[in-house]
């Protein structure tokens, strides 16, 4: 029974750790499917986290915080769009720039406004998204097997966690069942064809980036307002890049993205849980190896040893209209 409880606890923290990855991964999905590479997921999450925590603690409202996180994150996405769509700049370069501007400005502004070494004030109860306890969760907790699963795994997460997982079927529906989604995928594969059909390539890509900005904003808000009670400098700590890896691992598909993020979240949860204690059969695994595993797996996948990851064909190429 102890083993079972431990497994449930690991799975529970898997869910918590994979939520920011999932949101950022879906965000990347929108932009990359429209043909815009986005290395700036990390930076947009970071500004989202900062704006969310800052606004929530100033206005004493979690929802204003979330709104501000989305707003600022979309603004950064628009900078990326301005550089890479309007001015046809290098998308990678633009993404790198956004990551730097985000990393620097969150610390500078945080220090200037709150004087706590780049942190925002600790959020009070009403300023965070609290856990939602599902009906009957306490009552069934003692029921074997089903009880802990219901009480720990399904119930007791914050609103944003459920939102993140609901975004998976929603993204799938938008991409594969709506006109907007069809055009978005088309513009990532063959923008010239979309242009010929009389649809604006630029506007379509801008809309894709707005979706990206919204989702990275929510991801950032989750980090600073749910997982942590406030903003800490560099709190994304490479999650944007893991999300990028997950996106490739998922071969740019929403449902796969969820499984990839859960896998990477599980690796993280297991690494924290084990902390160097020996595993059966394999023996002691260094923590660093577990932390590097998502990246190693992605490289192996990219090398084409576990099926082939084929990116959207027009990805990274600025669209030049023939005149």
């Amino acid at each position: 029974m102890d083993v079972f409880i431990a497994i449930v606890q690991i799975l529970d923290s898997t869910i918590r750790l994979s939520v920011p990855l999932l949101l950022a991964c879906l965000a990347g999905l929108f932009s990359e499917r429209s043909g815009i590479f986005d290395i700036g997921l990390e930076g947009k999450m970071l500004v989202g986290a900062f704006a969310g925590a800052a606004a929530a603690s100033v206005f004493h409202s979690a929802f204003i915080g979330l709104g501000m996180a989305i707003l600022i994150s979309v603004a950064f996405a628009m900078v990326h769009g301005f550089a890479s769509i309007t001015h046809r700049g290098n998308q990678i370069v633009s993404g790198v720039a956004i990551n730097f501007i985000a990393a620097g400005s969150t610390i500078i502004l945080g220090q200037a406004w709150f004087q706590q070494g780049g942190r925002t004030p600790a959020l009070q109860p009403g300023e965070r998204f609290d856990a939602i306890v599902w009906p009957g969760a306490e009552a069934v907790r003692d029921v074997p097997i089903i009880g802990p699963i219901y009480a720990e795994l399904i119930s007791g997460h914050s609103l944003l966690v459920y939102l993140a997982f609901l975004m998976v079927p929603f993204t799938w529906w938008v991409l594969f069942r709506t006109r907007f989604g069809l055009r978005l995928r088309a513009v990532g594969e063959n923008p010239a064809a979309v242009d010929t059909a009389g649809i604006s390539v630029a506007w379509l890509r801008y809309r894709a980036l707005i979706c990206t900005g919204i989702l990275t904003g929510v991801a950032g808000a989750y980090l600073s307002m749910v997982q942590n009670g406030g903003f800490v400098k560099d709190m994304t700590a490479g999650k944007g890049y893991i999300a990028l890896a997950a996106l490739i691992f998922a071969k740019w598909k929403p449902v796969n993205a969820m499984f990839a993020c859960l896998l990477f979240g599980f690796l993280d949860a297991a690494a924290i849980r084990l902390q160097g204690s020996p595993l059966p059969i394999i023996g002691k695994v260094p923590v660093q190896f577990m932390q590097a595993l998502p990246y190693i797996l992605t490289v192996i996948l990219l090398a084409g040893f576990i099926g082939k990851a084929i990116p959207p064909r027009a990805g990274g190429v600025p669209y030049v209209k023939e005149r």
């Binding site: 890479s84 001015h87 700049g89 998308q91 633009s94 720039a97 956004i98 730097f100 501007i101 985000a102």
Partner: peptide, 11 residues
Amino acid sequence: QGLVILFAGAL
């Protein structure tokens, strides 16, 4: 640094 990359690179 970020602004230089943005204006001298992407833009």
